[in-house]
Design a protein around this nucleic acid. Sequence first.
DNA 1: ATGCAGTACGTACGAGTGTACGCACTTGGT
DNA 2: ACCAAGTGCGTACACTCGTACGTACTGCAT
Lengths: 197, 197
Amino acid sequence: MRRGKPNDPGRRSRILEATLDVIKADGISAVSYRGVAAHAEVPLGSMTYYFPTLEDLILSALDSTRSELEPRYAAPLRDARNLADVVDALVDATIGPTSPSLTDIRLYEEIRHYGARDPKVAAVLQAVEDDSLVMLQPVVPTSIALAINALLWGWWSHRLAHPDAPLDEATVRKPYEAIVGLAAADHSFPTKEQTRA
Amino acid sequence: MRRGKPNDPGRRSRILEATLDVIKADGISAVSYRGVAAHAEVPLGSMTYYFPTLEDLILSALDSTRSELEPRYAAPLRDARNLADVVDALVDATIGPTSPSLTDIRLYEEIRHYGARDPKVAAVLQAVEDDSLVMLQPVVPTSIALAINALLWGWWSHRLAHPDAPLDEATVRKPYEAIVGLAAADHSFPTKEQTRA
DNA sequence: ATGCAGTACGTACGAGTGTACGCACTTGGT
DNA sequence: ACCAAGTGCGTACACTCGTACGTACTGCAT
């Protein structure tokens, strides 16, 4: 039976939040018990109490992002009624309102980087990507979904590497149209607004 | 005037090589004077002698890869005489003989990751990417070159995240064809071997 | 032979790290 | 009132790290 109760129930999640702040700012390799403790304004002892191991802390922090980062562009994709809607959703996910901020991309990049060495994180990553493929599954074949994922990540990566050179919409849209168009048998799918020239 | 000569002239480059080994195996954040010294079988003092600062060591090591990694797919691209050749070169650069090994991709990823926080590395990175754009420039407009770069990096990234699920050629080729095809005005460019169905 | 400049390296210091551990404090059962 | 269990935290230890620094060695000019 439970005895004793926490004085500060939000403390654990505050620590996780501070951890993510540190990761976003300086990367996972900069995460230390003491640094996060200072950022979250909790004593060092609290850190090891809630997260006995530094890896626990990092994994918990990364895990807490899964529910948050994943579904940003999920709804538009699920609601897409034709291939043109899919293209719109992808363009938005790349540079539009449902696209991640540079900070979010950096965070995502950190997870990927860390996941390359940690199987547990890699599994999380794989799950997220699988979800993404499943969302695309109803509208395009798997091989095309793979290409779309690759291009989407490539664009995000580009934004991260060139924060001062924003992509314009046509640059992003046309390649998506071309790839998604592969799903429409042998002639190009109907776009909503135009066909160039 | 030069006086005194090095007892072990290859030592410096051996250190650099060992540094790259460590980076490939465990990432840049795992690079330490002592670790690299042990790997290269040189005393610790040699490290600080050749590379007074750890950053010097890392930058020198990364810099030494520039001349090596860059031109793997440069020649085929430069020799491309039509858009079909370009597609072939891209497919090869993605999964074919001129494509980087998983280790190389990891290394490239490390550089990107590190470059996100270090302006000097970022500059190197930018230079490499600019070169890549310049190579594509003669055959496709800039905006398409950007998309190709993004997709290429996306594919490489995919290979890194899914080492056990190799991409088959058609999956890679068709999206490239579609994007490169955008460069050919309003109807699709001639492919060398076939047009599907 | 002697000095000197540059090479090469062994050692030690100070800072920062993850983690173990013990001591207060809180709370519910008796 | 008392105890035990669980919460929360301060401190200290063992370790690794980057870097500074003193010292030996090498080869050339004189």
